[in-house]
Simulated assay, not measured.
Amino acid sequence: MRPATDPPVAEPLLSVQGLHAGYGHGEVLHGIDVTVPRGQVVVLLGANGAGKTTLMRCISGELRATGRIELDGDALGGLPAHQISRRGVALVPQGRGTFADLSVRDNLAVAALQLPRAERDVEMERWLDRFPRLAERSKVAAGMLSGGEQQMLAIARACIGRPRVLMCDEPSLGLSPAMSKEVFEVFEQLHDESGLAMLIVEQNAGLALGVADLALVIEGGRIVWRGTPRDLHDDDALVSAYIGDLEEI
């Protein structure tokens, strides 16, 4: 297996260096380094319990860590989650995290509060136009939506603040294969239209690698491999050890 060395990449936008984090006295991340280049999609793969969600929580400010987290050279470590969000790092958490009792429109309205007042309605309508199903159900409580509709609402809510980096934790979790494919088509469209940088944690490696510029494999809180999706696809030993079935690529 190749060592975890960096392939040539674009200019770093989000940078994580020497990150240590955990819960109580148990350390989960052991000096992890991750880079999301400007305008690229990075996919983080690994087994359950490897540290993927912990990394996302550290970057978003939900969990304290030691090490360095930077966005375009500016330190984010130690900032509260709402300040990190306003600086341009948006997280779609595992389980979507929508406000179940609020309508689709009200969920978007809450997210739009970080925008200038004059731009809020325009931005909300833009995202409702992108997701016609949400527009049709704009007055329905988020908790009454299907899993796929909730995921689309979570993506729209994260993007309405015009983030510089979009992070998504297990976006296909609990979705049908058809809906999972539709969600990843949304990611591809966002990237193609605006060059939005993304960090995606996903168990469905086939779908994830289909939209990725770079792939990372994490095991035991350490990055054990990094390279292009094609490099990963061609490494049978690596796929067998860490990924499983890649027939969907």
Rank of each mutant, 00 (worst) to 15 (best):
A237S: 14
R68C: 12
T98R: 03
N107Q: 09
V16T: 01
A142F: 00
P37W: 04
M179P: 04
T98P: 04
G73S: 14
R117Y: 14
G67N: 05
K139E: 12
D6A: 13
H82T: 08
D192A: 15
T66Y: 09
E248N: 06
M1D: 08
L232F: 05
L134A: 11
G31T: 05
L246V: 12
V165P: 06
T98Q: 08
S194R: 15
E188H: 11
T35E: 01
R222D: 07
G221S: 08
G67F: 00
K139T: 10
L113Y: 14
L102N: 14
P132K: 15
M1A: 08
F184K: 02
A141D: 15
G61Y: 02
H82I: 07
D121W: 12
I160R: 00
E193Y: 11
Q189Y: 12
A100I: 12
T54W: 02
S103D: 10
V140H: 15
F99L: 08
G220D: 10
R38L: 03
L153C: 09
D106Y: 01
V42I: 06
H233A: 14
H191V: 13
G88E: 04
I200V: 15
P12A: 11
G39S: 10
E27H: 11
P177A: 08
L55W: 03
A237Y: 09
L63H: 01
W127Y: 12
G39N: 11
R162M: 08
S176I: 08
V239L: 06
G227H: 02
H20V: 11
A10I: 07
G78F: 04
G18Y: 08
L145V: 10
G78Q: 05
G95C: 09
A212H: 00
